[in-house]
Design a protein around this nucleic acid. Structure first.
Lengths: 182, 182
DNA sequence: CACGTCATGTAATTCGTTACATGATTTA
DNA sequence: TAAATCATGTAACGAATTACATGACGTG
């Protein structure tokens, strides 16, 4: 389990409320870890009870009040312990690959539907690639002058970029294959 | 949920027992879908109750008897319905990326531990790449003469190969970055 | 006035993981 | 004789998903 640790990293980079964390998990962090607000609120309560994070109630005008969390000492320690323990390479769940192999057992209409589906995925991944590249130009215009934290953020972003590049190329390969077999 | 569908595809490609399915999920199918035998047995019972698959008891000598499952009509139909419904692009869970960003908040000893961890992952992914390439040479020696089912299996395998290639290159990038920042 | 954003939650169900359990046969 | 392979399961727990719920404010 690493949701706790992903939240800790995010709060170390910048304190925030459950709502703010949820939107970060929808954007930047979502590249390598997804979580819904329900999960996040549940884990935040547990982490606060364990003393990993500290909460501060912030009264706001014009919008609802919020609880802003930040990483506490025991949280940093727990993160450090986790960093030193090995994690297993990720387990993959790739619906589209299942569908591609399933297409062998469906009729031409089903294959046509799959082409549309693959094209849809291609659009999504190409858009993600563009967004990551734009983010790279915006946040890392001069890669020579980055501090340690920025260098690490940048190399993770490069991983996302290469993943999307590869995926778009592979989806083109899939489309060509589907076209070839009719 | 697509474990049902992954099992259906596997049974359509070749009928088999829960045990055999579990070992397929450990090898070929595990490239894009993982499942343990406990999950598989649970889902097989549900699928049989729903009439998606048919079971046949096979008495064996010298080894335990087994129940061999094969896809039934309603299962093929369910698969066809699923093929026509859109699936969302996968949700990623990438512990290593969390660790890399976490390294910004740990001391040099923690960073050294991370280098070892990244090197370990690199070995695993390089070995997977070799295994996929060997499988490709063995199963698809002449890509010009494949039928539809084989073409689809091959394009999924190429996806695995490109993923591992990209991952190994990225892990080298990560190692260089960790080295640069000390 | 409807919709989107900010903000936080509960409840029910399903899914995934870990541990435990049995028992025969083959191989080292 | 110990370990690995074949074969199938139960039980308990924790995690993830989905649906439901509330309410104020700002924008078009």
């Amino acid at each position: 389990m690493a949701l706790e640790h992903a939240i800790l990293v995010s709060l170390l980079e910048k304190p925030g409320s459950g709502y703010e964390l949820a939107s970060r998990f929808d954007r930047s962090i979502g590249r390598f870890w997804t979580a819904t607000h329900q999960q996040i609120y549940r884990v935040l309560r547990r982490m606060e009870a364990d003393g990993w994070i500290a909460a501060e109630d912030v009264v706001q005008e014009g919008r609802p009040d919020k609880r802003v969390y930040s990483a506490a000492g025991p949280g940093r320690e727990a993160l450090s312990v986790w960093l030193r323990a090995p994690v297993e390479p990720e387990t993959v769940r790739h619906d589209l690959a299942v569908k591609i192999r399933a297409a062998a057992f469906d009729d031409p209409a089903g294959r046509a539907g799959l082409v549309a589906e693959v094209e849809r995925h291609r659009v999504v991944h190409a858009a993600l690639l563009d967004r990551y590249l734009a983010g790279e130009r915006r946040d890392f215009p001069d890669p020579a002058v980055l501090d340690a934290q920025q260098s690490l953020q940048h190399v993770v972003l490069r991983g996302g970029i290469e993943y999307e590049r590869m995926t778009v190329a592979w989806l083109d390969d899939v489309l060509a294959t589907l076209h070839r077999i009719g």
